[in-house]
């Protein structure tokens, strides 16, 4: 196997990092850790975007998209952590399996 560019290597590691984040999100019951998994996934996505931009010579467009991704990520984390703290104050718990107040 010959590598024509670092592009495939970039995407290989991006896929690996996305897998690690998804593994964390799926298997943990801790809400903070689930948000950490989401952050790791977004790191992988950013690697994929910047690598594609650099390969196609369109770095500025990739930068603009990454700025959008970072903003959305920060908003999601802030909102998620606010809901988590509120849920902890109400239920004294951050275990997703115990958040079943609305179960009929």
């Amino acid at each position: 196997m010959t590598l024509t560019s670092t592009f495939s290597l970039d995407w290989l590691f991006a896929a690996l990092i996305i897998f690690i984040g998804a593994y964390c999100m799926v298997l943990t019951r801790n809400l903070i850790k689930q948000l950490i998994g989401l952050e790791i996934i977004s790191k992988g996505v950013m690697i994929a975007i910047i690598s594609s931009g650099a390969m196609s010579g369109n770095t500025n467009l990739a930068q603009a998209i990454i700025i959008t991704v970072i903003l959305v990520e920060a908003v999601i984390v802030a909102t998620g952590l606010a809901l988590l703290v509120k849920g902890y104050r109400l239920n004294e718990n951050i275990d997703v399996k115990k958040l079943d107040n609305l179960r009929g």
Binding site: I32, I50, A54, T59, I66, A74, L81
Partner: peptide, 27 residues
């Protein structure tokens, strides 16, 4: 390294700064 300084700046200030502070305060 990919010559994307604006994205790097945002990543450094928002993800390494703001989001870490949010996580640590929540913890």
């Amino acid at each position: 390294k990919f010559s994307a300084p604006w994205a790097a700046l945002f990543e450094l200030s928002v993800c390494a700064g703001l989001i870490t502070v949010l996580f640590i305060s929540a913890v």
